[in-house]
Simulated assay, not measured.
Amino acid sequence: MKQFYVGIDGGGTSCRARIRDEQHNLLGEAKSGSANIMLGADIAMVSIIEAIASAAQQANLTQDDFSNMHVGLALAGAEHKNSWQAFMAQLHPFASIVLNTDAYGACLGAHNGDDGAIMIGGTGSCGILLKDGQQHVVGGREFPISDQGGGAVMGLRLIQQVLLAYDGIVATTPLVTHVLNHFNHDVDAIVEWSKGAIPKDYGQFSPAIFQYAFEGDALAISMLKQTAADIEMFLIALNNKGATRICLMGSIAERIQDWLSPPVQQWIVQPQFDAIEGAIMMAGKAEHNLY
């Protein structure tokens, strides 16, 4: 029976799936919604199955083929043991599943299974060093208590500054006006929105921060300096643990490199493969399970 190997890279914003056959040929790739298991094991499973089903269609595969698929899952929130156990306790249609963090999968892919480190800055943030068979993690304990250098924290800080500007406490800038326009200049709408906002909702404002910083907006520039300092803090921590080759990964980290200090930039190298390939390396190999 032909076997398939599936890699899943799932975070607070999206879930990406890639299917390869036994000869490592690419069969299909697709994307669905959030797969952060701390936001719900069942929600993540729905996103994973949806992404795999969409990818499978590209190869004329159906859900009947799921039982021949070994799935490597690199998911946000997997570092939380109770969430990991809740997810793994679910029924699933696949031949096997292996679950570790999105950072672990990204690091495997970035260094093609060799020792090395990554710093992820996407919706959330996390640094990980794989060295001598051990993994060393910094940050990554989820928004809002951790994830400095990630888009969600950036968005939260921005909303705080917008409210201060609205009250006349800090200066209004074009970035502030941009956010107020988003909410039709209704502060009550911002407060109401915040009650149910999740990381990706805050993270949606990070592209605007980069855009307005490029245009010289004082608030946007100060925010990017803070984000760079946050990421630099984690890079130094990784270096202190022995990392000399670190890949920046994720929409925020990849764009922040020019804002980092020269001593830190000397550690930065380009990733060899992405997190989905790292997840495929995990597929069918139970030793990659976090717990």
Rank of each mutant, 00 (worst) to 15 (best):
H70F: 13
P93N: 11
L39N: 10
M38D: 04
N82C: 10
Q57A: 11
I49R: 05
L61W: 04
A56H: 04
W84H: 13
A89I: 12
A44K: 08
T101H: 01
H80C: 11
A103V: 14
S96F: 08
S47N: 09
P93L: 11
G72L: 03
Q57Y: 01
A78M: 09
I118W: 00
A76I: 15
A76W: 11
G40K: 09
L108K: 00
T101L: 03
N112A: 15
Y104R: 02
A106N: 05
G77F: 12
D64S: 09
L39Q: 13
I48T: 08
H80W: 07
A41N: 09
N112L: 11
M45F: 15
F87C: 10
D115I: 00
L39E: 15
Q90Y: 11
Q63D: 10
G113P: 09
L61C: 04
A74S: 15
A51D: 07
V98R: 01
A95P: 08
Q63C: 04
F66H: 04
A106V: 14
N60E: 10
Q85K: 07
L108Y: 02
A95Q: 11
I97T: 13
M88C: 13
D64M: 07
V98M: 06
A117Q: 06
A56F: 05
D114G: 04
L75N: 05
I118A: 00
P93H: 09
L73V: 06
A53T: 15
A86L: 14
L99E: 03
F94N: 02
G40N: 08
A103S: 12
A59M: 04
A103P: 05
A95L: 12
Q85Y: 04
I52V: 10
T101N: 04
H92S: 05
G109N: 02
Y104E: 14
H70M: 06
M45G: 05
G72E: 02
A76F: 10
A86K: 07
A59R: 00
L108F: 06
I52L: 08
S83T: 00
M119Y: 07
Y104S: 13
D42F: 01
A59Q: 01
G105C: 13
S96Y: 06
A56Y: 02
L73G: 01
Q63P: 01
Q90G: 11
E79D: 11
S54G: 02
H80F: 11
A117W: 09
N68L: 15
